[in-house]
Design a protein around this nucleic acid. Structure first.
Length: 423
RNA sequence: GCCAGGGUGGUGUAAUGGUAACAUUCGGGCCUGUGGAGCCCGCGUCCCGGGUUCGAAUCCCGGCCCUGGCCCCA
């Protein structure tokens, strides 16, 4: 028996790294005042098709249950959280700030080297009810704080706004849904593919040029001035640009100064309406988010603005490894080693005392000789070995050996935990 | 899902039609209260299913899985 394609077994350092990333992310969400929510791993298939269209069904683990209900393993968590909001929290004081951590599933070709798995762990947060730029800025600031606290240096934050491109396409006579293939072509950064899409919809030369200029303008804040001139004739796009500017102002007040602006970000088929952003490291996307002011209504709620971010925990952990960032390791405090079989009872009692005192302690369960036992303690990376034998016990003592240095000391059996507490 | 290249003990590799090998890990011994070494012993392997052949880990076909690219995305 083997595990299914695109899944993985986690253990050792890799799992420790993932747990570390989880702890940092969840801690930052709490520090920013978010509250945790949890939704089921499977939902109605409809929840996801409503958001992204039926074409994504072949990228979803979809199935019928025994009574014929169309269900799906969640491919992402924004839609489920919005559903939860609509079902239980619609009358909570706004803004409602929620965070989540959970596994998601996508039926795609796995590419481990790029951190793409069929089961992956996603963490994220949503601010529901605020349309103000502070809210957009907050989710970006918190994302930046996460990578900073984790110690990932080579990270890139890209900010954009899909409204600009969509307004240009609207003027060119392309309807909202027809815009999706073009937006995806833009997202792919493939000029030939984009050209083909633009030709297919018969876009005027002037608009084509405008689109291509918007996409090619990337970089620092001065891009905003260039863009302003390009979109002069489009009042809605100009409004979106002004809003993007005020988000950036607030982002700087949050203390984030390292970012680039890129109006070519389109975030695939997601239902983003305005501001969007992405987090990259070494060409791999670690996370992304943006504003989705229509989704809550689309899923059956009262119209309500919202903004959020999703983060790929596995990918962030992989990035941590690539950057050689050390993560704290969980070491065993004590290995208790009886010198003879007759003394096992006492060894077990000592281990119990250590555990009740809060230390991690293990007793050799293989009947090893002391020599092998110490070797085992070493391979288990124990900080201390506690040698328990009749010679010491006769005078009420045990021997504590510091594994790293080999120093040892005979201490009062009764004062063992006290001794270890002092390091 | 599509295209290309791969799959040998837990891990890393060798043998390329004729008895599956080496290193490491793991367990034991040398070693009856002091480790990481050494020597010795032991456990453990040809992805699965068909076909060709006297004989297949090896050649052929199909599947599964892995790696890279496409699509798509966290």
């Amino acid at each position: 028996m083997r595990r299914p394609r695109g899944t993985r077994d986690l253990f050792g350092e890799e799992l420790a790294r993932i747990r570390h990333v989880e702890r940092v992310i969840l801690d930052i969400f709490r520090r920013y005042g978010y509250q945790e929510v949890e939704t089921p791993v499977f939902e109605s298939l409809e929840l996801f098709t409503k958001k992204s269209g039926s074409s994504i069904v072949d990228q979803i683990y979809a199935f019928k249950d025994k009574s014929g209900r169309e269900l799906a393993l969640r491919p992402e968590l924004t839609a489920p959280v919005v559903r939860l909001y609509n079902e239980h929290l619609r009358s909570s004081p706004k803004p409602l700030k929620l965070f989540y951590l959970g596994h998601c599933f996508r039926y795609e070709r796995p590419q481990i080297g790029r951190g793409r798995y069929r089961q992956f762990l996603q963490a994220g947060c949503e601010i529901i009810g605020s349309s103000r730029p502070e809210a957009d800025a907050e989710v970006v600031a918190l994302t930046a704080e996460i990578v900073e606290e984790l110690g990932i240096k080579k990270c890139e934050l890209r900010l954009g706004n899909v409204r600009l491109l969509r307004e240009v396409l609207k003027r060119a006579g392309v309807s909202e849904t027809e815009q999706d293939p073009i937006m995806r072509a833009i997202d792919s950064r493939d000029e030939i593919r984009l050209q083909a899409e633009l030709d297919r919809w018969g876009i005027e030369e002037e608009d084509k040029k405008l689109l291509k200029s918007l996409i090619s303008l990337r970089g620092g804040e001065k891009v905003l001035e260039d863009v302003r001139e390009l979109i002069q004739g489009l009042p809605e796009a100009t409004k979106a640009l002004e809003k993007t500017k005020s988000i950036i102002d607030r982002l700087k007040w949050f203390g984030v100064h390292k970012f680039s602006i890129d109006f070519g970000i389109s975030r695939g088929l997601e239902y983003y309406t305005d501001f969007v952003f992405e987090l990259y490291s070494g060409g791999i996307q670690l996370g992304g988010g943006g504003r989705y002011d229509n989704l809550i209504e689309l899923l059956g709620g009262e119209p309500c603005p919202a903004v959020g971010v999703g983060l790929g925990v596995d990918r962030i952990a992989d990035a941590l490894e690539r950057h050689g960032v050390e993560t704290p390791e969980d070491r065993l405090d004590c290995m208790v080693l009886p010198t003879t079989d007759e003394i096992i009872g006492e060894a077990l009692r000592i281990a119990g005392e250590l555990r009740r005192a809060g230390f991690s302690a293990d007793v050799d369960l293989m009947g090893r000789s002391l020599s092998k036992g110490l070797s085992y303690a070493n391979s288990r990376k124990a900080k201390f070995a506690v040698v328990v034998g009749p010679r010491d016990l006769k005078v009420g003592k045990v021997t504590i050996r510091k594994m790293k240095s080999g120093e040892q000391e005979r201490v009062d059996r009764k004062r063992l935990t006290e001794f270890l507490s002092l390091g």
